[in-house]
Design a protein around this nucleic acid. Structure first.
Length: 592
RNA sequence: CGGGGUGUAGCGCAGUUGGUAGCGCGCCGCGUUUGGGACGCGGAGGUCGACGGUUCAAGUCCGUCCACCCCGACCA
């Protein structure tokens, strides 16, 4: 590709609304342009990088038996109604009507499209197991896109779906993906860790997220350096210790005027934070038979801890959760700021499992200006559910080995999910087993967003001058710079560079040729910004010595090689760069 | 949806007490220059986010709305 004809302009300054490095650099280097919030155009450079990433995904999916297909982006609402997600998913889903007034959906994921196909196509156990995948656009109307390509509304995703007779088959395909995903990220040279994640509403019994650790990430993870435990904060467990072993004392009402928060309370009563009980009011949508009901939940955690809403949702089987309005709290007889479940009826009480081990807590008296001291679980109140509902924090004890865990930020670059038979059952996607019985297909789903992966690679590999792409992800393998200038040798330089460009192409090398009439400074700076790993320079300085200059983007050292060896030498360097990627791959076994 | 911020040329920005819009980069032409973002001369490019109001006069004052960014909520 000649840069004189490339649709891509580099910018000296990043747009002021780009904050994180990958966003700034991808825009400055001419890879992407923004059209609207969370909607981007991939310019020719980005398109080539994305294609490389997607080809890596293809190869790794094919290697574990995947077959590529393409499922539609626009779906009739019926298939989403069949799984219940037409109602369940909120405004995040794109909906419109076609010219006949028929409800349509912009796909945000493709489980529905998969079961719509397999319902008709899979009839016998002889067809299973199977693995299908596609690389397709998704639309998710996220309330807050951010960070350039990190979190967008329209994006391309490789999603695969495993189809099996039973859970054992799913376990195998899941383990295959677990390894294949490490290979995909490894080939993109992106360091990732796999952490356990929330299975959410999808049922199933296991999910992992692949996280690239970076401060610009939006998920919080808990990691244990001692034993390797790792989990998304949404589900991270930790060891809790009771702060006190004292005997239960007599319940006592105390006046605590204007002490509505835990901070006020401990200041006023001169007690430690851990000796208080914090009530968090949430409204949860809970399925009760065939009807959905909204219920008020009293979630109680110790005053020094935070409620983990994901854990709470899982504890009560809630479909949705939101903070309760003050009026909703008052309507059950509780007094905001002075609330507790003591003496109240008809509410759903969920307490953290540490509460029964925490004697003599201070809790609200359900009376304006008063709290109760020496509240004890069991004696003074009981809960409908006692389970772990608190959020793990930096420094908390590892659930396996008790060592202090670290809380770090990460970007979710991929996830794998054991769905089970849920979707198949919902739409009657069954197969006939060897015993003659109709059984639902057991599914798994697995996703990697290609744009987010590219952004993460850029986030990992950049310096003050620009991108430093691994060759496996770089839009071109070689950046050829011609410095013809106005010298008397310029004709010779131009011709030499042109011939080298043609020879490199003939040798099957992907070349970006800077044939523009620009000053050396401009060309070198643009080359650094675009970040192709290998740069070749044809200029009078080195041509005098019968050679051309080579330089790796990642190193400052420059070498001169004879012109007649330029193609072979370049091939060799490229091969070495690919080898380095291959050698850095580690096999990661899946341990269940 | 709550909090904060920003909207003036492709990008970054300035614009005074309200008086009819400017700078740098980029872009076009000519010339000089040519190994780390050159220089001179000439030029193109703006319904100042939108709508409404105040005023003789609005980029500037007032109101409403919209878009975009950041934090939070949310996130199959």
């Amino acid at each position: 590709m000649r840069m004189s004809n490339l649709l891509s302009q580099t910018l000296r300054e990043a747009p002021s609304d780009a904050e994180i490095p990958s966003h700034q650099l991808l825009v400055r280097a001419g890879y992407i342009r923004q059209l609207a919030a969370g909607i981007f155009t991939a310019m020719p450079l980005a398109k080539r990088s994305l294609t490389k990433i997607e080809d890596i995904m293809r190869e790794e999916m094919d290697a574990i038996g995947g077959q590529e297909m393409t499922m539609p982006v626009v779906h009739p609402a019926e298939i989403w109604k069949a799984t219940g997600r037409w109602e369940k998913v909120g405004p995040e889903m794109g909906r419109f009507q076609d010219r006949n007034g028929r409800d349509m959906v912009l796909a945000m994921t493709h489980e529905e499209a998969v079961v719509a196909i397999i319902k008709d196509e899979i009839q016998s156990y002889r067809q299973l197991p199977m693995l299908i995948y596609h690389i397709q656009t998704k639309w998710r109307d996220d309330p807050r896109p951010r960070g350039g390509l990190i979190r967008v509304r329209e994006f391309t995703m490789k999603d695969s779906y495993s189809l099996d007779r039973d859970w054992a088959g799913l376990d195998l395909q899941y383990a295959n993906h677990y390894q294949a995903y490490f290979r995909i990220f490894g080939r993109c040279k992106l360091p990732v860790i796999a952490v356990e994640s929330d299975v959410g509403m999808m049922g199933g019994n296991m999910a992992h997220e692949y996280m690239y650790l970076t401060p610009v990430g939006e998920d919080t993870l808990l990691l244990c350096d001692e034993c390797g435990y790792s989990a998304n904060r949404q589900i991270a467990k930790f060891q809790k210790k009771s702060a006190s072993t004292e005997k239960a004392k007599k319940l006592k009402k105390v006046a605590t005027p204007a002490a509505k928060t835990i901070a006020d309370l401990i200041e006023f009563l001169k007690i430690p934070e851990y000796q208080t009980a914090k009530v968090v009011f949430m409204m949860a949508v809970i399925q009760d038979g065939n009807v959905e009901k909204e219920k008020l939940i009293f979630a109680i955690v110790r005053g020094d801890m935070d409620l983990n809403e994901t854990k709470l949702m899982n504890a009560v089987g809630a479909k949705q959760l939101r903070p309760a309005e003050e009026s909703e709290i008052i309507s059950v007889g509780a007094v905001p700021g002075y609330a507790s479940p003591i003496g109240l009826k008809g509410i759903l009480v969920v307490v953290d499992d540490l509460i029964p081990d925490s004697p003599n807590l201070v809790a609200g008296a359900n009376e304006d200006g008063y709290h109760l001291m020496n509240v004890n679980y069991g004696r003074d109140f009981i809960a409908d559910v006692v389970t772990d509902i608190t959020a793990a924090r930096d420094g908390d004890a590892c659930p396996n080995c008790s060592a202090a865990m670290k809380a770090v930020r990460g970007i979710e670059v991929g996830n794998i999910f054991k769905l089970g038979p849920w979707y198949s059952e919902a739409v009657g996607a069954t197969y006939q087993d060897a015993d003659g019985e109709e059984k639902p297909v057991v599914m798994g789903s697995y996703g990697i967003g290609s744009g987010r992966l590219l952004a993460s690679v850029v986030e990992e590999y950049n310096d003050e001058y620009g991108l430093l792409l691994p060759i496996s992800v770089s839009p071109y393998e070689v950046h050829l710079v011609e410095l013809a200038g106005g010298k008397k040798e310029s004709k010779e330089i131009k011709e030499t560079a042109e011939k080298l460009y043609q020879d490199l192409k003939k040798a099957g090398i992907e070349v970006l040729f800077d044939d523009r009439d620009e000053s050396p400074g401009v060309k070198f700076n643009d080359a650094d910004l675009i970040g192709i790993p290998l740069r070749l320079t044809v200029g009078h300085r080195v041509l005098k010595e019968g050679g051309i200059e080579t330089k790796l983007r990642s190193e400052s050292e420059k070498n001169i090689i004879p012109l007649d060896q330029a193609v072979d030498n370049t091939k060799e360097t490229i091969r070495r760069l690919y080898d380095q990627v291959e050698k850095s791959l580690k096999t990661v076994e899946f341990e269940s």
